[in-house]
Design a protein around this nucleic acid. Structure first.
Lengths: 190, 190
DNA sequence: TATTTAGACTAACAATCGTTAGTTTTGTTA
DNA sequence: TAACAAAACTAACGATTGTTAGTCTAAATA
């Protein structure tokens, strides 16, 4: 599935607009205006508005899925897995904060790929829970409720897209140091 | 500004629909269907679609503003203020999780009240930061960056609406105990 | 019982939506 | 330069949008 330059440009503008105004509030004419062409010309490059949304969301979702799989397969402690997951979130949010925002806000407007997206998300959260459970079994983590721990971690990580664009690159580097400390010191067994 | 029963019923249904599908994806006909009337009949009770959104969002935002003011005026430690803020968020998210969801997702669709809402939000976050700063000055809190601490806390608190509806009432009681420990143990000076 | 009123209705409006068909322009390759 | 392909264009479609005007009905009030 080759993606041309022009199509990438469309996706990039769409991501920015969807993030600012929400998928349903951005018309094909709005998107076309941003590219300085007519709405009908978009259809030389894409099949439908929904295909745009789907491309943006699945790119992010699959990147998370791959990252999780890679980390899960490593032979390291649960704490180290959690640290790598935090880094994964920071990296994706840095590279593609518009995409992350759209995943969080507009996933429910998927149609054809809705079930697939939900499956990816369920898998991700399930593996996240699993790593925490392992950590508790290994006595690496204190025995608070897994759901509460996971909720706290994922809430913060899933909201990084709101915060990272405001920060300089230096601050992001700092974040990679500070955030694991902040998120893990409360649950880590010493 | 008296609000009739019927209007409350409309707002309740609207909140549920807006939360499920997003403000822009819910038509006045969708909302009318949920109430088993015609779309035009809604206008006997409300002025516009946007007025509905505004009512829902400002109710929540003003409740946060009042709660914050009350807590800030109390003569207690910074840690205790943070604990009370956590409780405030849990209470509002329990009572009105649809409203909270809409605030997070659809605030940008406000028009007339957009500036007012943004002001309320700025004030809230600014006071939140202030309390953390006080805690650091008092040596109650460790000296991580205020922004990082606030971001972590607010991310989790602002996402409670996703989590609380899945839990029973008992679990919410448990949450009021567990969440302060989890959120504050990482930053509290012993 | 007569009057008023709250709240539903039907019908329609102008605007905007995503999308399609058919055509023209533009730039590259033979 | 001729031929071709990519990518723009104009024009229009049927559906849906929020909203308004005017009307009817049923219940409350006088």
């Amino acid at each position: 599935m080759k993606v041309t330059d022009r199509k990438l440009e469309i996706l990039r503008h769409a991501a920015r607009l969807f993030r600012e105004k929400g998928y349903r509030a951005v018309s094909m004419r709005d998107l076309a205006d941003a590219l300085d062409i007519k709405a009908s010309s978009l259809y030389n490059h894409i099949q439908s508005k929904e295909e745009i949304l789907s491309s943006i969301i699945l790119e992010v979702a699959e990147e998370y899925a791959k990252g999780m799989q890679r980390i899960q397969d490593e032979n390291i402690s649960s704490i180290d897995k959690l640290k790598k997951l935090i880094t994964l979130h920071i990296q994706i949010a840095s590279k593609n904060s518009n995409g992350m925002a759209i995943v969080q806000k507009d996933w429910m407007h998927l149609e054809e790929d809705l079930a697939y997206y939900k499956q990816l998300r369920r898998d991700y959260e399930s593996k996240f829970h699993q790593i925490i459970e392992e950590g508790k079994a290994n006595k690496e983590l204190r025995s608070a409720h897994t759901e509460t721990i996971a909720f706290n971690l994922l809430s913060t990580l899933n909201t990084l897209y709101l915060w990272i664009p405001k920060k300089s690159n230096l601050d992001v580097a700092q974040l990679k140091v500070e955030l694991p400390l902040l998120l893990l010191s409360g649950i880590q067994e010493d």
